[in-house]
Simulated scan of single mutants.
Amino acid sequence: MNTLSHCGIRAENAFDGLGIRLRRLFSPDTGRSLIIPLDHAITMGPGGGLEQPRSIIEAAVLGKADAVMLRPGMVRCLSVSGAEGLGIILALTGRLASGVDHVLLNSVEYAAAQAADAVCGEFKFGSPGDLENARIIAELAERAHTMGLPVLVTVYSRPEALEKLGSDAYAHACRIAEEIGADVVKTSLPDDPAVISQCVESTSVPIVLAGGPPDASVDLEDFLRRAVDQGIGGAAIGRRAWAASKPVEAIRGLAAAVHGERAHV
């Protein structure tokens, strides 16, 4: 099982900058993490639940999330009470409303100055620009690791990759992310035990699930519990957390599912 306690921090670097910062992102009790991303507004616009970023941070604190993912300019929103206990992942690549491929928007050095515990870059396996995006992330990872900063790589398997490779595309995408420098892989997977198992077995870094299963009829908390049982290292849930009618309760339930606990309302 590739949770943090098994392979995310190796003995030789458990107490260097990389290991110390990774421990800020994952629960010391379970080796898993619930991350709340709120880096969507440059693409989606500041609506649909993103209007008040500080309220999302407050909900993450009260709901017992482990970390948040946001953009460097929004670090000021972490000034709410209790946010000092959250891991900080800063997304450095992005796009606007058009296209699918990312460019580098902020530097690793700037993220470090903004107190990042980790940095994030994204690519989409099978997109027209996937090779260039992989190169951008590989360079980002090199710079981050020289500064002791962990790297979370977000990767999604595009229809083009799935058409060509079938379900093997999911594990292939995760392995690409690891090989170009990911310490944590964030990806979206279907509710298919064989696919999840293949991804876990094909990587040696924690995988966190993004967004939940594509099929909205699947209960998200049940899905996460099953995935955790297969060795998934956590989840990164944005819209289905902060856009919920009761965000604190939604996050609390997701945290309980990730950490194998009962939600306390």
Rank of each mutant, 00 (worst) to 15 (best):
residue 35 I to F: 15
residue 121 G to D: 09
residue 173 A to T: 00
residue 256 A to N: 10
residue 197 S to I: 01
residue 5 S to A: 10
residue 165 L to C: 06
residue 170 Y to H: 08
residue 157 S to D: 01
residue 121 G to P: 07
residue 171 A to N: 01
residue 93 T to D: 12
residue 206 P to G: 03
residue 99 G to I: 06
residue 189 L to E: 03
residue 194 A to Q: 11
residue 72 P to G: 02
residue 175 R to P: 01
residue 26 F to R: 12
residue 151 V to M: 09
residue 34 L to H: 09
residue 236 A to Q: 03
residue 92 L to F: 07
residue 156 Y to E: 10
residue 69 M to V: 13
residue 26 F to N: 13
residue 130 D to C: 09
residue 44 M to H: 07
residue 105 L to N: 10
residue 129 G to Y: 05
residue 102 H to K: 12
residue 179 E to K: 11
residue 111 A to K: 04
residue 222 D to C: 03
residue 114 Q to R: 15
residue 211 G to D: 03
residue 256 A to C: 11
residue 79 S to I: 03
residue 27 S to D: 15
residue 222 D to H: 06
residue 97 A to P: 00
residue 209 L to A: 02
residue 194 A to K: 12
residue 236 A to M: 14
residue 186 K to S: 04
residue 207 I to A: 02
residue 12 E to N: 15
residue 157 S to P: 05
residue 115 A to Y: 11
residue 162 L to F: 02
residue 135 R to G: 00
residue 170 Y to A: 02
residue 194 A to T: 08
residue 164 K to G: 01
residue 107 S to Q: 06
residue 178 E to H: 03
residue 231 G to T: 10
residue 249 E to A: 15
residue 250 A to S: 14
residue 222 D to K: 12
residue 203 T to K: 00
residue 74 M to V: 01
residue 64 K to C: 08
residue 139 E to F: 07
residue 194 A to R: 10
residue 38 L to Q: 11
residue 178 E to A: 01
residue 73 G to A: 13
residue 226 R to M: 04
residue 40 H to G: 09
residue 239 R to N: 09
residue 245 S to A: 15
residue 184 V to M: 15
residue 20 I to D: 08
residue 59 A to T: 03
residue 19 G to V: 13
residue 202 S to L: 03
residue 57 I to E: 08
residue 109 E to Y: 02
residue 75 V to K: 11
residue 191 D to T: 00
residue 155 V to G: 00
residue 31 G to Q: 08
residue 88 I to S: 01
residue 36 I to H: 06
residue 202 S to N: 14
residue 257 A to G: 05
residue 153 V to M: 08
residue 157 S to H: 01
residue 172 H to R: 14
residue 254 L to E: 09
residue 52 Q to E: 13
residue 77 C to T: 15
residue 179 E to R: 14
residue 21 R to S: 11
residue 2 N to I: 09
residue 52 Q to K: 12
residue 189 L to H: 07
residue 14 A to V: 09
residue 148 G to Y: 05
residue 90 L to Y: 06
residue 24 R to G: 12
residue 132 E to T: 06
residue 179 E to C: 10
residue 25 L to N: 07
residue 56 I to Q: 03
residue 70 L to I: 14
residue 88 I to Q: 08
residue 229 D to F: 05
residue 105 L to K: 08
residue 51 E to D: 11
residue 76 R to A: 06
residue 226 R to A: 06
residue 63 G to Q: 13
residue 121 G to V: 05
residue 236 A to C: 12
residue 238 G to T: 06
residue 151 V to R: 04
residue 129 G to E: 08
residue 104 L to D: 04
residue 229 D to K: 15
residue 242 W to I: 09
residue 103 V to H: 13
residue 81 S to M: 05
residue 9 I to M: 12
residue 36 I to D: 08
residue 209 L to G: 03
residue 61 V to F: 05
residue 23 R to Q: 15
residue 247 P to H: 07
residue 54 R to A: 13
residue 212 G to P: 02
residue 214 P to T: 02
residue 219 D to S: 11
residue 155 V to C: 01
residue 233 G to Q: 06
residue 72 P to Y: 03
residue 251 I to W: 02
residue 99 G to W: 10
residue 211 G to F: 04
residue 214 P to K: 10
residue 88 I to A: 03
residue 130 D to M: 07
residue 63 G to H: 11
residue 178 E to R: 09
residue 14 A to M: 04
residue 201 E to K: 12
residue 130 D to P: 00
residue 48 G to Y: 04
residue 42 I to S: 10
residue 18 L to P: 01
residue 156 Y to I: 04
